[in-house]
Simulated scan of single mutants.
Amino acid sequence: MGFQSESGPWRDVYLSGAAELRGQTKKSGVPLVDPVTLPLALLIEYTGLRLDPAKANGITKRIGLNTTDTKEKYTLVLNNSVLSLQKPTQGEKLDATYSLKSREIGEILGTGKNAGSFKGLGEIAGMLDHFDPAFSLVTPVEETKDRDDRMASAED
């Protein structure tokens, strides 16, 4: 089926799934995205995808970001477990304001490097999930103990 597919992406999915089932997958530790190289708007979108809603529940933050290399000014808003980037408004109340290079913001939000020096950004970095780039395509994920405990208590 994989070799007969007309579409390249479909062929890739079929053959990758077959290789995984045979135990022939390569487990790469290479990150899918390098946050340090992303433009600020894409970095915040990527960071918003990684935000753990349980950790961000009930937290509201407004952080001013001034990029010294691109001369951009934004307000980073965390509200209702959603991270967004907005244009600043005059007189808005901010929890913190940082003037950094885009690369430094990428390091803080992407890797947590130097997060302790920037409290507001460091707190957001602490709410992020870290995805495994070598996730399985077709084989089931092992269930966690928490789910097993819930299922056992439901049967009682």
Rank of each mutant, 00 (worst) to 15 (best):
P31A: 11
K113S: 07
A41F: 01
L65F: 07
E6H: 10
L137A: 06
E107L: 11
D132V: 07
L109V: 00
L94I: 12
T111F: 06
E143D: 10
L128Q: 03
L83H: 00
V82Q: 15
M127K: 03
V77D: 11
T75L: 04
S5A: 14
T89R: 10
L85E: 00
G116A: 09
P53N: 14
V138Q: 04
L15D: 05
T47I: 05
D69A: 10
L83K: 01
L109A: 04
G8Y: 11
T139N: 14
L32T: 08
Q90H: 10
I44P: 03
M151R: 15
D149P: 01
G29R: 04
R11D: 07
A19Q: 05
D95L: 03
L43H: 03
G48W: 01
G48R: 02
T75H: 05
T75N: 03
R150N: 12
A134K: 05
R50W: 02
D95G: 07
P35V: 02
L43A: 01
L43N: 01
D129C: 10
L49R: 14
R147F: 15
S117K: 15
T37G: 00
K93I: 12
T37V: 08
G126F: 02
A125M: 07
K101M: 14
L38K: 01
G8S: 13
S102D: 14
I108E: 01
L38S: 00
K93N: 12
V77P: 02
S102F: 07
E6G: 15
G122W: 02
V13P: 00
N66I: 12
S5V: 03
G120M: 02
N79R: 13
D132H: 07
R11Y: 04
V36E: 13
